[in-house]
Design a binder for these strands. Structure first.
Lengths: 201, 201
DNA sequence: ACCTGAACACCGTTCAAGT
DNA sequence: ACCTGAACACCGTTCAAGT
């Protein structure tokens, strides 16, 4: 394990333990037994180190989505599985999640990071595409529909992680809300032959 | 204008000009001609000052939504108007937007801030409710549907503001994506008597 | 009640110097 | 090629002291 890899691993651990502000170059260096400016020999600055952490996680997510997409099964359960993986990642690693999907300074770095993010996005879009071929989701532009679903997913996770979506207030969990979204979108894609009403009993 | 009000105004101006990291207590104090720790006589700490900035903006948004809701007009155009106001706020004041809707440390403060945020949310939910009475949106639980629409809106704005949703890649703008969402949700609420297809001409 | 100046314990970053 | 220690210019926060 190279020093650079150890720095990335230590930064990720500090991120999980104490949030972004806990990832100081001094703490990262101390965690692997080097001085507080040894990281500068491997990364341009603190932002580049955090970007390296993000790239690793984007690749993990891409692999997870690829495994789901190529697995056997119906498209809609596979989508639900992918959504659950993503929601769980956001809940279990909120600081990492924010780094990947909600930190403006990190995204501004572009380069390898942006490409890794796009690979994750396109792998996810493949799962959406399968749902469209079976008419479980509407036959609009795949990239537009993926953007919409992904943005909803992100919004739910970000609002929940920031404490702005409290279940006590009767608001739904990300999982429930995504279930609602796919159900409603599915209804618009495949209008029921027998008109069902949700209000009466 | 009290010193406290001047501090809040100066903090908001610094936020717009240079982002959250530009809002240092030294810069805020200097902007209104007091020392760098004068703010401590009016706010508990830096976070409380930022929370005060957020509260002012939540109230502005609440008022804007209330004006739209009580205006004359059809529910669906009123919703579109509210969405545009929100999207424009996010685009024109990205740092303020993040403070209100995406900063975990600020939301953790609770109290008056949380109440101001809830008032904004409930005002928005009233506009959604009108669209549900006219069957322009599905007749599911109002709070669940509002959560879903609001989370989508937030996700789109946050991803765009962070540079993660690039139009060059064929991804839609928040405005276009929200149009798609309301159209699709509308179709599920009010299945067309004459089945229209979007693919043919 | 409101404000100031000095001080403390942190930061990221740079740089000369070492191996 | 990789690392260190000192130094610099910042931070937020605390505190004794002033009016």
């Amino acid at each position: 394990m190279s020093t650079a890899e150890k720095l990335v691993a230590a930064a990720a651990a500090l991120l999980d333990a104490g949030g972004e502000s806990a990832v100081t170059l001094r703490a990262v260096g101390h965690a692997i037994g080097v001085s507080h400016n040894a990281p500068y020999k491997h990364f341009k600055d603190r932002g580049a180190l955090l970007a390296a952490v993000a790239i690793v996680d984007f690749e993990t997510l891409t692999d997870a989505f690829a495994a789901i997409r190529t697995s056997v099964g119906e498209p809609l359960p596979k989508l639900k599985h992918a959504l659950d993986v993503f929601i769980r990642y956001g809940r279990d690693y909120p600081a990492r999640y924010r780094l990947l999907f909600s930190d403006p300074d990190i995204a501004a770095q572009g380069g390898h990071l942006e490409q890794a993010a796009l690979r994750t996005f396109f792998e996810f879009s493949g799962i959406i595409a399968e749902c469209q071929t079976t008419r479980d989701l509407p036959a609009t532009s795949n990239v537009k529909l993926t953007s919409l679903v992904f943005a909803t997913l992100h919004g739910l996770i970000d609002l929940e992680s920031g404490g702005r979506m409290r279940h006590e207030k009767g608001l739904s969990s990300p999982s429930e809300s995504m279930q609602l979204l796919t159900t409603l979108l599915g209804q618009s894609a495949k209008p029921p032959l027998i008109k069902k009403t949700t209000s009466g009993r």
